[in-house]
Design a binder for these strands. Sequence first.
RNA 1: GCCCCCGUAGCUCAGCUGGACAGAGCGGCGGCCUUCUAAUCCGCGGGUCACAGGUUCGAAUCCUGUCGGGGGCACCA
Length: 555
Amino acid sequence: MNPEQLSAVVVDALAALVAEGALDLPDGVPAEVTIERPRQKGHGDYATNVALQLAKGAGTNPRALGELLAARLRDADGVAAVEVAGPGFLNITVEAGAQGQVAADVVAAGATYGHTDVLAGQKINVEFISANPTGPLHLGHTRWAVLGDAIGRVLAAGGAEVTREFYINDRGVQMNHFADSIVAAALGEPTPPDGYAGGYIDDLAKLVEAAQPGIFDLPADERRAAVRAVGYDIQLRQQQAQLEMFNTHFDVWFSEESLHASGSVPETLQRLKDLGHVYESDGALWMRTTDFGDDKDRVLIKSDGELTYFASDTAYYLNKRSRGFDHCIYLLGADHHGYVNRLRAMAACVGDDPDKTLDVMIGQLVKILSGGEELKLSKRAGTLVTLDELAEEIGVDALRYSLARYPADSPLVLDVAEITKASADNPVYYVQYGHARTCRMMENAAQLGMSLPEAFDPSLLSHEREGALLRALAEFPRVVAAAAELREPHRVARYLEDTTSVFNKWYDTRECRMLPSGDEPVTAVNEARLVLVVAARTVLANGLALLGVSAPERM
RNA sequence: GCCCCCGUAGCUCAGCUGGACAGAGCGGCGGCCUUCUAAUCCGCGGGUCACAGGUUCGAAUCCUGUCGGGGGCACCA
């Protein structure tokens, strides 16, 4: 009996009461009811507030309705007890056998346990990081790498068809600054104005020379284009390698330049003109975004004839839509929050409803403290902490987990000393250790000749701690579904921490030992508990996978 | 000036899309290692949920305002 099944039981009971004429529900019988896990012991395994919510419409009071419903529910399969409490809550105790069945359900579902269909039929594009290919990925990209990747995984678990996309900002003057900076480094000249400095530029100069010997001896006009192309290629591959190392996967690397090469931009401008949302003024072409809530109109073509970044953004959005995405998620840093209104207005200008097609997530920036000092970065000044350096110092799993366990909109201060601690203080190791422990228990069971029983008696999982663990495991699909719908993968991390704690409490309970003591024979209880351990392992492994964090079998 | 985010225990933060006496970890104090990994577990102490109104049977949660902190308001990329 999981919460969803219990909800159905309550709905059936309501329907029966209505059919008998004992209850009048003007709005009809709800399709589902809220089932929650009471914080308080003594409030049953599960509680529902239906009586509170339906009483007014039914022309009765919550307690009376509660009593009526409780009497009916007591006869339902799998329900052991029902009490009406407080203002009209129904506190429900589930039969051990019904509850124990959860373990078998989890094991049967295996790696797919936690997957739901809440987002079935949705085709979603998640765009994140989208850095310039003018330097290595660094501290500033790390949070988005983790969150975007985890959101992608969680959406997929919710049944959506997901594409994770990286928009390569490979067009514009910064690419020339990039090339000029490499040339300057190669020739031993000072960094040009607006150029990029730092050791990585020197390294790039050597790599570019190695890739195409003699490239720096070309005439100045040819040289810039050549260096730009070679440097770009090397830098992009490096970013891709960084993300690979960081366990962050992209389905599509989309070049801004290719958007222009394909002629999408003129098409986009034409479409905007047809819809009547552009005008000329002061020699520039504007989009009238103020028609849809923006503070001011935005320039598409500057008076010098250059296209703006915003023009590309609009063409890119239409490109996504033309590829069939009915939902476009953008992950942006708080320093870009001014983009939200114009993106939404832009979507409206091309005829979409931004509430439906656009989902702009603004994440707060992360500060990382090391030895009490904040790690600062500036690509132009050449002082940056690369993703590789961070991952090496902190560890991929610890870094990913530490960023994934907070909501995107919470400002974050991470202390390197704290998240590198290889101890229980660190939630990532706490959860991983819990997983490793389940693996060891399974090995121990196998050595005693125990194997997963074909059938077992779920009512043998009757200890209070077993009930708590089963309810925790039963919660997982709801947590993943909420994480997907709300785009909040941190819920998965928090859930894993709670569930690991519940598992450890059970593990430490003497009466709940999975293995037989001493020379005693293996009993049905031992086998039932093995099923529970495998179920716990499944949930911890699946949850860690959703965060892109490894689930080690030994630690 | 306008917009966005945040304000919960000494510290770092959760709080299940409003629910029953507010939670975790860290830090402090004190317990448990002859049986499955003690990176576990158990106990104690600690909060006017920034403040003031409002909606509701019910508000840390939703609405309005005030105060405090962070970020943003380019014919930059």
